[in-house]
């Protein structure tokens, strides 16, 4: 379990992370989402002891990362944004060093190195120079390094950045696989990626946590579930039907050609319930629905809405401030 409490990091006048608090429970994959410069890397660097915090605490299973760094660091494996590799060595030599530094010895070390090489699919290149490896392999080696010492928690900073589509899929599968045995926290600015693998999503914007929920709940939270349809009737008839139907709020109505209305409505309840009701309401009046489409809010909308709201909120504050002055 990782507890982050009131974490703040300032670089001079710039606040990279401000008053961040969250708790990560074991046994799930967490996605850390945010636009570039939102403070994802800074937060991860602090959580893994690579950076100090201006204020606040990070506890890994009760061990404070600043007070008891060695105990805390043993519980986490970290892959920084750029995999920290010694390019002149082979993966085997590199992993041996990291393993030894993590306190592994003798047969246990050899066994674990073999295990992480197998897990990350690096067995074929174990004896090649790291500098000669492809970017995907380097990234895997970075993950292999994080896995040594069997930490409970794996923290990966943008593990799929700069990889080709095939490599991205491979790394994603690897993360999914790791999620079965470890708690994984990984950051990304690619929404679909996070949606595809994560059980929990943390959205960070301007150094603040703006959302922390499951992807399904985040989608449910959105109000912009919409139904778009074309009815074989004039506009006033359509309005008449909509007024009598529960759970809909017309957003846009247009009579495209005489006797043919295009409508966009917001659904206030479960989408399928509303669309079923709509279908029968029109059917009762003998009007055909020529086209019907559902627009579910996706993570992208949520992300944009949340991060923009944050930005607007900030601007609002500034305006208030200047008005007072």
């Amino acid at each position: 379990m990782i507890e982050v409490e009131h974490l703040t990091k300032r670089y001079g006048d710039v606040t990279a992370v401000s008053d961040l608090s969250f708790t990560i429970q074991p046994g799930q994959i967490y996605g850390f989402l945010g636009p570039n410069g939102a403070g994802k890397s800074t937060t991860m660097n602090i959580m893994t002891g690579c950076l100090s915090a201006t204020e606040g605490h990070v506890r890994i299973d009760g061990h404070d990362i600043f007070q008891e760094p060695n105990q805390a660091k043993r519980l986490i494996g970290y892959l920084p944004e750029q995999p920290p590799l010694y390019l002149n060595e082979t993966p085997l030599e590199y992993l041996r060093f990291v393993g030894e530094a993590k306190g592994l010895k003798g047969p246990a070390l050899t066994e674990q190195i073999g295990e992480v090489l197998r897990q990350t699919g690096l067995e074929n290149v174990r004896g090649r120079r790291i500098a000669a490896l492809s970017k995907g392999y380097k990234q895997r080696l970075g993950i292999a390094q994080a896995l040594l010492g069997d930490p409970q928690m794996i923290i990966l900073d943008e593990p799929t950045v700069g990889l080709d589509p095939l490599q991205i899929i491979e790394i994603r599968d690897l993360i999914k696989e790791l999620g079965k045995t470890h708690t994984v926290l990984f950051s990304s600015h690619i929404l679909s990626e996070v949606q595809a693998i994560c059980g929990q999503i943390l959205i960070l914007s301007k150094g603040k946590l703006v959302a922390f929920d499951t992807p399904e709940n985040l989608e449910r939270r959105m109000t912009s579930n919409e139904i778009v349809f074309t009815a074989d009737a004039p506009q006033d008839v359509v309005v008449d039907i909509l007024v009598q139907t529960e759970g809909v709020s017309p957003l846009d109505l247009q009579e495209k050609s005489p006797g043919l209305t295009e409508a966009r409505i917001g659904a206030e309840e479960e989408l399928y319930d509303v669309s079923r009701r709509l279908f029968f309401a029109f059917a009762e009046r003998g009007i055909a629905l020529l086209e019907i489409g559902l627009r579910k809010a996706n993570l992208e909308d949520i992300f944009i809405e949340l991060t923009e709201k944050e930005a607007q909120g900030k601007e609002g504050q500034n305006h208030d401030g200047s008005a007072e002055a």
Binding site: C50, P80, V98, K102
Partner: peptide, 10 residues
Amino acid sequence: KTDQLLYSLP
């Protein structure tokens, strides 16, 4: 950037 590794190791 291998210094980050050294910082994150116990």
